[in-house]
């Protein structure tokens, strides 16, 4: 079974929604490099979908996830709501970091009743899933995954498992991470290291959220893009060098994609790097598969030919800092 992708919603440094991401790819328009090297996201658009009074306790982290989820519904033509028993999987690398790391001695004095209940509630690791479930009325299985840079492929794999075992017929699955001092410091130290060694400047740190609506292919039309496969592996060597977010074109049924990639591109200058940025890669892959001009621009054939492979597939690969690697392979359509 293939899992069809009915819709996608994205929120990042480039803006909100599929069209904004496509425009950024087309124009190669990296957002202005800010003083703090981070591509942060705006979520004002959320007010269009949800009355502000129901969002009054929702923090920036959950707002990004909520907006990306709602945009995915819109993209899928499901503005009226998701099917009964829809499942939800939220992947995060850092969790509600701004909260969790900010819950510091000033907030937690050695006296009872010294912590804001709202701040505490928002620091719980499944807070984003809770808000999405409540506001989008998702009453199926809900799962929050925290496995750093492997969170997104694990979330996709679990979504496919749920569809295959009949736990649910539709899954809203995606990733979210928010900018924090920890990410900022990590970015700075990495930048200094690279500059010192004359290496290329890494993409700035980012934040954002990408969500997708997946359903069983036998329940949807053949015109939808689909998740062909999800691969993951543990580091074979602890010192294996990281592979940055990479989109690779391949037209092979072989799963050993590293050897069969004919072209590859790193688009993180558009949305920055963060633990769950592979979700952005998947959204970018969908944009490339939708528009042949973007595909041939970003992933030109190594032999200089201009023909698009008949059945193009894009692998979204990342080998993280811990050595573990994951790849989500997206196909154009089931025709």
């Amino acid at each position: 079974m293939k899992a069809c992708i009915l819709g996608a919603g994205v929120v990042g440094g480039f803006g909100c929604g599929r069209a904004a991401l496509e425009a950024a790819i087309r124009n190669r328009s990296a957002p202005e490099a800010p003083a703090v090297p981070a591509l942060t996201a705006q979520t004002d658009l959320l007010d269009r979908f949800v009355p502000p009074r129901t969002l009054r306790r929702v923090d920036h982290y959950a707002r990004m996830a909520l907006l990306a989820s709602r945009l995915a519904l819109e993209d899928a033509g499901m503005d009226d709501g998701l099917p009964e028993n829809t499942g939800l999987i939220v992947a995060t690398g850092m969790g509600p970091t701004a909260n969790t790391l900010d819950l510091q001695p000033a907030d937690v004095a050695a006296a009872d009743l010294a912590l804001s209940p709202i701040l505490f509630s928002n620091s719980v690791q499944n807070a984003a899933a809770a808000y999405i479930s409540m506001l989008l009325k998702i009453r199926g299985p809900c799962l929050s995954i925290n496995q750093y840079e492997m969170s997104v492929p694990l979330a996709f794999q679990t979504a496919i498992d749920w569809l295959e075992e009949g736990r649910t017929s539709t899954v809203l699955v995606g990733g979210v991470d928010c900018f924090s001092k920890a990410l900022h410091d990590a970015s700075l130290s990495r930048r200094e290291t690279k500059n010192g060694s004359g290496g290329r400047t890494p993409a700035p740190v980012g934040e954002g959220s990408a969500f997708f609506i997946l359903t069983r292919s036998d329940a949807a039309g053949a015109q939808y893009p689909f998740v062909h496969d999800v691969h993951m592996g543990a580091a074979m060597r602890p010192d294996a060098p990281p592979v940055p977010n990479t989109l690779m074109l391949h037209n092979s049924r072989k799963t050993d994609l590293l050897d069969h990639a004919s072209a590859h591109v790193d688009l993180t200058h558009l949305y920055g790097t963060f633990p769950t940025s592979m979700g952005m890669d998947v959204a970018a892959a969908l944009a490339l598969l939708r528009t042949e001009q973007l595909l041939s621009m970003c992933l030109p054939r190594s032999d200089g030919g201009s023909a698009i492979p008949e059945n193009p597939r894009i692998g979204c690969l990342k080998q993280g800092e811990t050595g573990d690697w994951g790849m989500i392979v997206i196909g154009r359509d089931g025709r």
Binding site: G95, N126, A129, I145, N146, Q147, Q157, T158, G233
Partner: peptide, 12 residues
């Protein structure tokens, strides 16, 4: 030394 999948679930 396991090579299989591993995941941490944070469903409170």
């Amino acid at each position: 030394g396991l090579s299989g999948p591993h995941v941490t679930i944070v469903n409170a």
